[in-house]
């Protein structure tokens, strides 16, 4: 009540000053007052009330017509005042939801965190950036007792919170697998059963699982409908798609996955990605696979991590720093 009285005097004096001088300074001060009033959640009808009171004090002979017109204006402002209150309530609610999501996102970061293992003769780079706060992409590295590298990359169709919840399930299932080495095809078959049992039929997960064995220098892999990666053949200086057939996870209980094998030679490279990379858009146009490769070629002289970081920066800029889908890119470079 005291602050309102104070406002009233300041408002009245300022109004008087403006009526007498019509100077910009009073208008600037009026702007400051209006900000203060908003901070105090003062509604438009109360401001009109302050105005009317000030007018009456400054001009005791104010005509009846003007006074009635002010009552009329006050009445029309009531709904605006309500809309303002509703807006404030919704903004508070939004703030609460946002802070909940950021807690969930940091929980997810901890949950899905993966460490790039040291593998003999292999330089590993990985980047995964969510489009919104929570990530619907998943990637994971493991090193087994015989020194082989296991790499998983998966993408839930969709993004945001539902995709992130789904991803946590994949993570838990992977953790529950036995310690000893499993074939990529067996891993996908097991995950497929978990997904089929637990996920709504409208939700799909694509996944690629690969194993690199340093002793034999071979890359063994299977894919569940995942975006094909690339193999760089250093000897012939050509990139080729890593083709692998397989049904997306969760569609059919008895899906079986074919397993493929590739020889990896010195300076060869394996690129794994999600469709957030290949479906980058410049304006309304989707970029071509060729363009992804061109950008990769531009940075492939760098270390694997520097390379993926730079490719990400390139596409982030291309899309005006606004990712439309979760973006995950992994590079495995063989250097011996």
């Amino acid at each position: 009540m005291d602050t309102l009285k104070l406002d009233h005097h300041i408002y009245r004096d300022l109004l008087k000053q403006f009526i007498e001088t019509q100077d910009e300074k009073s208008l600037y001060e009026a702007e400051q007052i209006s900000k203060q009033l908003m901070q105090r959640h003062t509604s438009p009808e109360e401001i009109i009330h302050i105005h009317v009171k000030a007018l009456r004090e400054l001009f005791p002979n104010l005509s009846k017509e003007i006074q009635y017109s002010m009552d009329f204006l006050l009445e029309t402002m009531i709904s605006y005042g309500l809309a303002l209150q509703e807006f404030q309530a919704l903004r508070e609610k939004q703030y609460e939801i946002n802070s909940e999501i950021s807690i969930a996102a940091s929980m997810q970061d901890t949950l899905l965190s993966t460490v790039k293992p040291a593998i003999e003769g292999m330089d590993i780079g990985a980047i995964s950036v969510p489009a919104q706060q929570m990530n619907g992409d998943y990637h994971h590295f493991v090193k087994d007792s015989q020194g082989a590298l296991g790499v998983a990359i998966a993408d839930v169709v969709g993004k945001g919170i539902p995709a992130a919840l789904c991803m946590s399930m994949i993570k838990y299932s992977m953790d529950s697998f036995p310690e000893n080495r499993m074939d990529p095809s067996v891993i996908l078959e097991n995950l497929n059963r978990v997904v089929e049992r637990n996920v709504d039929p409208s939700m799909f997960i694509t996944m690629f699982y690969g194993q690199y064995c340093p002793n034999s220098a071979t890359f063994t892999y299977s894919s569940a409908g995942h975006e094909p990666g690339f193999h760089y053949d250093a000897k012939h200086d050509v990139f080729s798609e890593i083709e692998a057939r397989g049904l997306v996870l969760g569609v059919s209980r008895d899906a079986v996955y074919q397993q493929y094998e590739k020889e990896i030679n010195e300076n060869d490279m394996i690129i794994l990605l999600t469709d957030g990379v290949t479906e980058c858009r410049q304006g309304e146009r989707f970029i071509e696979h060729e363009e992804v490769l061109n950008v990769i070629k531009q940075y492939m002289h760098l270390s694997a991590q520097e390379m993926v970081d730079n490719v990400f920066k390139h596409f982030e800029r291309l899309q005006d720093f606004h990712l439309r889908d979760d973006f995950t890119l992994i590079a495995l470079k063989k250097y011996v």
Partner: peptide
């Protein structure tokens, strides 16, 4: 009730 409250009650 004052004018502002009258208007609110009417609404």
């Amino acid at each position: 009730f004052g004018t502002v409250d009258q208007a609110r009650i009417a609404t």
